[in-house]
Structure formats: C-alpha cells, structure tokens
C-alpha cells in the first residue's frame, strides 16, 4: 500500500521536514528518558491516547481539503457518545445477558454512525445548498450539537456502560490497542479514498477551484455533502472511542480537541486554503504531538506546559516552512 511515502522521499518538502522533526522529538525523548519513554509500556499507553485525536484530525483534513473547516466535530462526537450512553443507561435492561449486551453495543455503534452522519448532513446542507461559509455553518452547528448534548444531560456526565463496551477504547487485539487498529484502518481507507478514487480527487479539485469544478461538471454540492457526512461519521466513531476509553459521556468532553485537530492537520501539511494535503501527514503530526505530550508528562511537566509547547511547536513549524518555501522559491 502506498501511503504517500514516495511523495515524502520525492520532496513533499513540508512533510519531509515534519517527519524529520518528529524523529528528532522521538530521539530527544528517548535520550532524556531512556528508562521510561523507550518502553513497551509507554508505547502501549501512547497507542491508546492518540487515535481519538488522529481520527478527528482526519475528519478535519477532509473539510480543509475542500477549502472548508469543521468546527462542529467534537460537538458531533459528544452528541453521538451521549446518545449511545442513553441507550445503555435508559433502554438496555440492567442484568441483560451477554448476548443481548453485544446486540446493544452493536446498536450503539450503529447509532453513533447514524448520528454522526446526520449531523454531517446538516453541515453539508448548510454549506453546499445554502452556501453558508463553512466556518460559520459549523460554528453554528457546533453550538447547536453541544447545546443539544447539554439539554439532554443537563451538563452532567452520563456513566454506567456495560463492561464489554470498554473493549472499543481499552481492548487489544494481538497486542495492538483497538483504538489504534481503528485509526490505522481509517487512515488506510482515507489514503485510498483520497489518492485512488474519483471522489477523492474531486475533493482536491473543489478545494483548488470550486467554480472550475462546477464548470467541469463535478457535482460539487453532492461531493461536499458526502465529505461532511464522512467527517461526521468519523466524529461519531471518535465519540465512541472517547466514551468507551473514559467510561463516560459528557457534553463538554474534549473541547480542546477541535483546535488540536486543526493544529494536527496544519502540522501535517494540509493547506487551510484547500486543495492539498496527505493523510500520512496526519499520522506523522499526531505522532509528533503524542511524543511531545508523553515525554513532557514523564518529565513532570503539567498539562498546561504541554499546551504551551504545542502552540510554540505549531508556530515554529509554520515559520520553518516559511523559510524553506522562501529558499525553494529563489
């Protein structure tokens, strides 16, 4: 499977740079923390942490490829996980036998997918049919989805999942965490979708010049609609992992993810103006952030120090990109 590594080798300059920086971060952490960072235990724990953000960032990338943005992703994730939680707490009879629980879990997954796609459909409708600028449309729906979640829960956390459910967020298959497996599957699917299908190429074309896409007979409205629906679907899945991993669903869970996913997408080389970006960049960027974040935790930095470093990291990468692009120009 060609993930675009070839492009990196060929000189997709900014991604190559990011890979290099990620590697440096990794080596730095290994050097600073030989006993704790470079351990199986740490890698296992990291592999459970970054997939949520990774999945949301893939969804963000999808919107950014077409020149849009999706601020409502976390709102969708939380709404999906809360509705799923309600199924367990309010509908599923307690003490259900194992088989019934599994059916309910399948139902909850289906519900999350459905909720995610419906929310994405509304975004897509506003953006592609009513021509609302994406940042405004999703700013509004972000308020709406989060608002509905608050109304449903009165702001409190919903807890009480069946033990089986936690497999999605905490289980392992052949030594690999389920969230990681889900992320890798989605990443692969994305790579294929973006590089190898008509739909994927249409996304790039729309992001590059929406008017020309229209005049070329590309069904711009439909493509946008589907892309926001896929984004919503991904957010729904991320919501499942989040609620399963933390064993709770809350209206304001992970609100910082929205900015982080923009950060990951931009770090990963997705142009905010649309038309360019690789799925593989998302993986590298999210790994870079995870290395930084885990390393700092082990160095006893507070969470806040991480936030500080992330901001600085983003700016530093952008500045480095600026200088390399300038050099390439001359």
């Amino acid at each position: 499977m060609n993930f675009g590594f070839g492009k990196i080798a060929k000189g997709e300059g900014n991604i190559r740079q990011l890979s290099f920086i990620t590697l440096c971060t990794f080596i730095l952490m290994c050097w600073l923390l030989p006993d704790t960072f470079l351990t199986v235990r740490n890698f296992r724990s990291m592999s459970f942490q970054f997939p949520e953000l990774g999945i949301l960032s893939l969804a963000m990338m999808l919107a950014m490829l077409t020149g849009g943005i999706d601020l409502s992703l976390v709102g969708i994730a939380n709404l999906a996980s809360i509705l799923g939680a309600f199924v367990f707490v309010k509908i599923m009879p307690p003490d259900s036998p194992e088989g019934v629980v599994l059916v309910y879990i399948a139902g909850v997954v289906a519900l999350a997918v459905f909720v995610g796609m419906s929310c994405g459909l509304l975004n897509g409708f506003l953006i592609s049919r009513l021509n609302v600028p994406p940042i405004l449309a999703t700013l509004g729906t972000m308020q709406l989805y989060t608002g509905i979640a608050i109304v449903l829960t009165k702001g409190a956390a919903v807890i009480g999942f069946p033990a089986r459910y936690s497999v999605i967020g905490n289980g392992s298959v052949a030594g690999f965490g389920v969230p990681l497996i889900i992320f890798i599957l989605l990443l692969t699917a994305f790579t294929v979708l973006l590089r190898k299908t008509n739909f994927g190429i249409n996304l790039y074309l729309i992001g590059s010049n929406a008017k020309a896409a229209l005049f070329s007979g590309i069904k711009v409205g439909k493509v946008l609609m589907i892309s926001y629906m896929i984004g919503g679907l991904m957010a729904g899945l991320a919501g499942l992992i989040m609620s399963s991993r933390t064993n709770g669903a809350k209206a304001d869970y992970g609100t910082s993810y929205i900015l982080q996913s923009i950060l990951v997408a931009v770090l990963g080389g997705v142009k905010p103006t649309g038309g360019s970006g690789y799925a593989i960049g998302i993986l590298i960027a999210v790994l870079a952030l995870q290395f930084l974040s885990s390393g700092f935790s082990m160095l006893r930095f507070s969470n806040f120090a991480k936030e500080f470093v992330w901001g600085v990291f983003l700016l530093a990468i952008m500045i480095v990109n600026y200088f390399t692009n300038e050099r390439n120009k001359s």
Partner: peptide, 17 residues
Amino acid sequence: TEGLFLEQSIERNLFAN
C-alpha cells in the same frame, strides 16, 4: 477562474471530469 485548477497537476486538470 472557471476552467483551471491552477495548483493541481496537469493530469488532474486533463481528467477532472
């Protein structure tokens, strides 16, 4: 403004539709 995807490859411009 209506015909080309300037930043995209010649190939993508040729086969856009």
